[in-house]
Design a protein around this nucleic acid. Structure first.
Length: 206
DNA sequence: ATCCCGAGGG
DNA sequence: CCCTCTGGAT
């Protein structure tokens, strides 16, 4: 078993129980929550969406939302002017082009305002169970440190990492890398002393 | 001061 | 490649 496969098995074991911090019932809620999550913590998103989805339970209500009112709901998530405008445009397009249903392909999802490659991959993987791999800042940082990727470009990281993990592991691998990045392989003082793959990691051994 | 489960535009 | 958008947590 080569080095990378051993790293994968250790991550699988270490984070066997973890799942997304953004757990939502349907594609609409996951899509909105993921848009709100840009440059914002998952904890803050979960607080905001509790009230948000009472007021806007489906794309229909969100498409008819008043901009200023929507902004007041999501203000604490940051980047709120962009997000509020995008959310309304996004919901309007879901109503007019997709019959009120969130689409499930990369091409369709990325035509929605505020939805880029990362958000589209999250929706495909976790709302529709499709083989997709989303790269966020944690995934990018950890992948580069452990030698699974060699780029600052998220699209390039996605391309490189998806070749290393088996397709059936993509959804879980996304969470392994996120949780490893948050708990251990942190941006600022990574906890290499207690890391489960420290002996195999190029970043720790350089 | 730095980062957070980014996207869009130049 | 660069920049801007943004409040909150540490």
């Amino acid at each position: 078993m080569d080095n990378k496969q051993e790293i994968i098995e250790r991550l699988r074991k270490e984070y066997a129980d973890v799942k997304s911090a953004l757990v939502y019932e349907n594609p609409y809620e996951l899509l909105v929550a993921t848009i709100l999550a840009a440059q914002c913590t998952d904890v803050r998103v979960n607080i905001v969406t509790k009230d948000l989805f009472k007021r806007y339970p489906s794309p229909k209500e969100l498409a008819e939302a008043d901009l200023a009112e929507l902004e007041s709901y999501i203000k604490t998530c940051g980047l709120y002017k962009n997000k509020a405008k995008n959310l309304i445009a996004c919901a309007q397009r879901i109503m007019s082009e997709y019959g009120g249903q969130v689409p499930h392909t990369m091409e369709e999802l990325t035509t929605l305002a505020g939805v880029g490659r990362k958000t589209a991959n999250v929706v495909m993987a976790f709302a529709f169970g499709l083989p997709a791999f989303a790269v966020d800042t944690h995934v990018k940082r950890v992948s580069n440190r452990i030698g699974f990727a060699n780029s600052d470009n998220p699209d390039k990281v996605e391309e490189q990492v998806t070749k290393i993990f088996r397709k059936e592991d993509w959804a879980q691998a996304h969470h392994w890398l996120i949780w490893h990045g948050r708990r251990v392989c942190k941006a600022q003082k990574p906890l290499c002393d207690t890391c489960c793959i420290a002996d195999l990691c190029p970043y720790n051994n350089k």
